[in-house]
Design a protein around this nucleic acid. Structure first.
Lengths: 222, 222
DNA sequence: ACCTGAACACCGTTCAAGT
DNA sequence: ACCTGAACACCGTTCAAGT
């Protein structure tokens, strides 16, 4: 391992570059191994140097989450609200798949950044302009975000990426648990998921359509 | 502060008592301040003593999450599947409010404990016995859990507990951001939430009914 | 203006030892 | 069988100092 030469950065650090590096590092190595020290090292800088650009680790995490929000596609203000909402939901799911650590992080991040505000502003605007009465728009907003984040959370939690991996895991679990007879319905479920080559994207869209159609019905009966 | 007397525990530790103490500590002081050292202190024991009952901190967290799952009411196998599902959803939300740290924790906990398995077995069973064809039961299961966990996640994230707190926060945010003019719809939203004394429980149930009714329609058209 | 280095009060976990 | 104590390799962050 060559000792890193001590060339000073031509482009000195700034908040943006620190945040982007942190996002990249979390994407690659997971959030649990993102430390100020490790990030400093990645940027060729002593840990304390980061504190000129970021107030604390909390601040760093807030910034990272807002970068993720910035990647979600805003709904267009089209005539077709369902299409617009479907697109932004699909985009949100894709973004949360790309940055799996982010969904778990929103947990504690209590103050929304500008990208977050901008995005949710656009969502409310889309619904209101599509003719949702105010209170129904609030319900629709809550409903959709619950579904999107909840799905992303489950997708992240489910311990397999491909059907083959899943088959392995079922096998393994069966060996450890032993008495799978207690869980006939779960066994049926697991078996099916393997055989049907379970498709997260299709599952997401099935639920999304259910939600959007139910909201459309609610809108019409108002 | 009196030095704790060195009386040995009459009832020595075991896995159960360690897990329960950890849950209680997380409830009181938050998950971020739950450390092996702090937990040991709480139990009047040197940190390393815990490792006789728990393989690692990861194992401790897995166990804690499963305790939380154990508190969720299983659906009864009644004729009324909607009622049964509504009850268990309401119970799940209540439990996740009681243990706010748990929802953020499911993030990384990838191997489900017995209480988790038992609960989800009961959910699948309820749906199947209510006449949901297999694939629709899978969709219904995914849909409901996405909604429940997503709602809990948002509820946890939203930074206010009571409408009054919320009013304060809007005010504060307005001062910091300055240019709230950029977000007219969010301002409208925030204002309304304060005036309407936003009720999480009512919001949750509105969405839950939307989901359950949409699922019932899907079931009938099969 | 930006970066450094030493120090402080923490972590989870190992290992060998005590009772 | 259960608990202890010292040690190791980490954390985030402070402060005073360097360029």
């Amino acid at each position: 391992m060559a000792k890193t030469t001590k060339t000073p950065h031509r482009t000195p650090l700034n908040r943006e570059s620190v945040l982007r590096a942190a996002v990249a590092l979390a994407d690659e190595t997971g959030i649990e191994s993102l430390s100020m020290r490790r990030l400093g090292q990645e940027l060729g800088v002593v840990p304390m140097a980061l504190y000129k650009h970021v107030a604390s680790k909390e601040d760093l995490l807030d910034g990272m989450v807002d970068i993720v929000f910035g990647e979600i596609e805003d709904p267009s203000t089209a005539t077709d609200w369902k299409g617009a909402m479907r697109r932004r939901a699909t985009s949100a799911r894709a973004v949360l798949r790309r940055h799996r650590w982010a969904i778990g992080l929103m947990e504690s991040r209590t103050n929304p950044g500008p990208a977050n505000l901008r995005h949710h502003e656009a969502v409310m605007r889309c619904l209101r302009e599509a003719g949702f009465p105010f209170e129904l728009a609030v319900h629709a907003y809550s409903m959709q975000d619950s579904y999107i984040y909840g799905f992303a959370l489950q997708e992240k939690t489910l311990p397999f990426e491909t059907p083959d991996e899943h088959a392995e895991l079922v096998q393994e679990k069966a060996e450890r648990v032993g008495d799978l007879d207690e869980y006939p319905y779960l066994v049926e479920l697991a078996t099916h998921l393997v055989q049907a080559r379970y498709d997260y994207a299709a599952e997401f869209e099935w639920g999304l359509d259910l939600v959007l159609e139910a909201l459309e019905r609610a809108r019409q009966t108002t």
